[in-house]
């Protein structure tokens, strides 16, 4: 009988060393995972730290009620309202494009489209999300605005309308893919039950699938809102950089994000009050997205269906 020996390429570690190595690796991986917590803490820390120095100079009441934002002028005003109105108007325009189109697209892709069409269209929509926002800004300023001007005569070159519309198209894929996932995860027996009662596909989609998936669809809308509120380059390029308190989307106005960009383009001395304004603006932005997210979380909890 031939003795067979297993050839070991490397010497095995002793059991003790092996345990130590395992533990070391686990600790390393854990530290890597903690990096995300560290990032969050750092974001909040930096924003709050710089904003505190800002709010020592400018009262919170002033910040929230003053109707002018002109920190770089001699007659400086620090009212966030103009930037807030710009952000809210562009977001509203974007959502009025993305929510209906995204929802209908999701219903269509989930309940109507044949398999092959869906396999083709989904990657195409994903490509839409892969286009750099600066390119969307170019498109909004030099294609959509001239196009709108052909029938909206008095539309200025910079306006929130075209920025909002392009932003809306940009967030269609976010809204549609998340809501489609939510609708497809509705159990099949609900569909079958509805068909068995003689409902058409459309009736099933609107009266059974949509209500059952509403919590996931809400999450999709919230994702869209967060994207729109935080979107920077499209509005900075196409909506202008002039803070104006206006609710008319045909006007030029700066958003919170556009203001941060316009200040960063200049050369502000570190530690000046003007420098701290962008952190105060950033903190406002983060709080806004946070409020939307918490709101969405409770909304989706409220309407969650249990199967």
């Amino acid at each position: 009988m031939v003795e067979r020996q297993i050839q070991l390429t490397t010497k095995p570690l002793s059991p003790k060393l092996r345990k130590v190595r395992e533990k070391a690796i686990e600790i390393l991986l854990f530290l890597a995972a903690c990096s995300s917590v560290a990032t969050t803490i750092a974001i909040i820390g930096i924003l709050v730290y710089e904003s505190i120095t800002f709010f020592r100079e400018v009262s919170l009441v002033n910040f929230l009620t003053d109707t002018q934002w002109s920190p770089l002028f001699d007659d400086a005003h620090y009212g966030i309202l103009p930037l807030l109105s710009g952000t809210l108007v562009t977001t509203a325009v974007a959502l009025s494009v993305a929510v209906p189109l995204g929802t209908i697209a999701a219903i269509y892709l989930s309940e109507f489209a044949p398999f092959r069409l869906r396999e083709f269209i989904k990657p195409c929509l994903e490509l839409l999300a892969g286009i750099p926002t600066v390119v969307y800004g170019y498109f909004a300023l030099l294609f959509v605005t001239p196009l709108l001007q052909t029938f909206l005569w008095d539309l200025p070159g910079f306006n929130m309308l075209s920025a909002g519309i392009v932003m809306g198209v940009m967030i269609i894929p976010y809204v549609s893919s998340v809501s489609e996932d939510a609708m497809r995860s509705v159990p099949l027996h609900l569909r079958e039950g509805s068909y068995a009662m003689g409902a058409t596909r459309l009736q099933t989609a609107l009266k059974v699938i949509f209500p059952s998936a509403i919590s996931g669809i809400t999450a999709a809308y919230i994702l869209g809102i967060s994207r729109a509120v935080g979107e920077t380059m499209i509005v900075a390029i196409a909506a202008g950089l002039q803070p104006t308190l206006t609710w008319n989307p045909m006007n030029e106005a700066a958003t919170i994000t556009a203001y941060i960009v316009s200040v960063s383009l200049g050369d502000l001395p570190h530690g000046s009050l003007e420098y701290q304004t962008i952190f105060a603006a950033g903190l406002t932005l983060v709080l806004m997205t946070l409020v939307f997210n918490i709101f969405g979380y409770f909304l989706s909890r409220r309407y969650r269906e249990k199967y």
Partner: peptide, 25 residues
Amino acid sequence: GLIEINVTNLAGVPSIIYGLLALGL
């Protein structure tokens, strides 16, 4: 749970906020 919530939230933070973080930090 904390780490998971963090990762989800970070994905939703506007990109310009990362710029402010980098500027300060």
